[in-house]
Design a protein around this nucleic acid. Structure first.
Lengths: 191, 191
DNA sequence: GATAACGGAATGAACGTTCATTCTATTTAA
DNA sequence: TTAAATAGAATGAACGTTCATTCCGTTATC
């Protein structure tokens, strides 16, 4: 087994356990056990627990980002691009409950606050795909001229909560209902 | 100091520390210290940590519930009642950041899942004010005939996220913006 | 055989909870 | 009225457990 395999195993085990049992319910020893490695081995690949959790977040975020960016109809109207992103977002997280749970846990933890702060201040200065769509929509006067944080909330909050409810069994978010919630969010954003 | 005082002191200290530092960042010893009591004293008033956390939730939930129910225009149209509730909700949690943070932490913890499950199944069988408003709205064909969980999400998710952002400094949720977000949520619900 | 990777026992810090003891206020006895 | 007795509230040191991290003997790789 080469180096990369162990690292991948550790990340997979960590995602499963942290998603299922929460950030405080998955000790390093258990992660090691599920990954089939010794507890000490984890520290050869990740400096400490925080680094593991943060790198795993980046990795999982990358996955949904790739889905959203792929086949993006960049030359179509804002509304259509919005629907494409949101439906891709829902489909991906319906298919990947563990990824969803992980991201949710991360955002609702102190890591998430830190992360959100850096993103809004754009510390890294990198290009944010969705942020850009909303700014363009505001410029074109297609969506309301609201603070960007508010735009994100109107666009994502009901959808994310609905995905959560789908996974906990409180809601059956089938294609029809997904369409309804995306349309509702769009209606709350559009001028 | 009489019995009631100590209990209140403990609850106040617990709310402050659990809200500020999260459910895993506030040891019982620290709560006791801030409350000005011995660590063991807490266990005279609360069976264990879980009971303290759960009772505190009920107490804090009661407070916002009282605000929402008070002066409720029960004989006015659904839309007006919705606006009354949502604006009261926002105003209360803008005024009480610690209560907001506490409720948020609770909902995003295993306690919250349990609580949500019981509420949706209506285990206690008690009358739920807001639930009832939505059901009535559906019956009157004023709001969309969607699963009740979806109605809650469309109604509350953007508002709750906006209150969070207000307290973290990402958003200035003044009266004007509060009006906008409530109207947006209503627009996503109404037929 | 030298070097890097690995495993898992050992370590020590942190935490919830317990319990023997102290303190305080109220009742009883003289 | 005063002093002893009692009840039970309050205390905080101690306990047992859990957990992230380290350490070091063993194994694999070249």
């Amino acid at each position: 087994m080469c180096k990369k395999d162990k690292r991948t195993d550790i990340m997979q085990a960590a995602m499963e356990l942290l998603a299922e049992q929460g950030f405080h319910g998955a000790p390093m020893a258990q992660i090691a056990e599920r990954a089939g490695v010794g507890a000490g081995t984890i520290y050869r690949y990740f400096e400490n627990r925080d680094v593991l959790i943060t790198e795993l977040y980046s990795e999982i975020y990358e996955r949904v980002h790739r889905v959203i960016v792929s086949a993006h109809p960049a030359d179509r109207p804002i509304r259509e691009r919005f629907f494409h992103i949101m439906k891709g977002f829902i489909a991906h997280y319906k298919d990947h409950p563990l990824e969803y749970r992980y991201i949710e846990q991360f955002h609702n933890s102190p890591y998430g606050l830190q992360h959100r702060k850096e993103k809004l201040l754009n510390v890294t200065g990198d290009y944010d795909f969705i942020h850009n769509l909303f700014e363009e929509g505001k410029k074109q006067q297609v969506i309301k001229d609201l603070p960007i944080a508010m735009v994100f909330n109107l666009a994502f909050a009901p959808i994310i909560w609905s995905i959560r409810d789908h996974h906990t069994g409180f809601l059956d978010l089938d294609d029809e209902l997904a369409e309804v919630v995306v349309r509702s969010c769009w209606d709350s954003l559009k001028i």
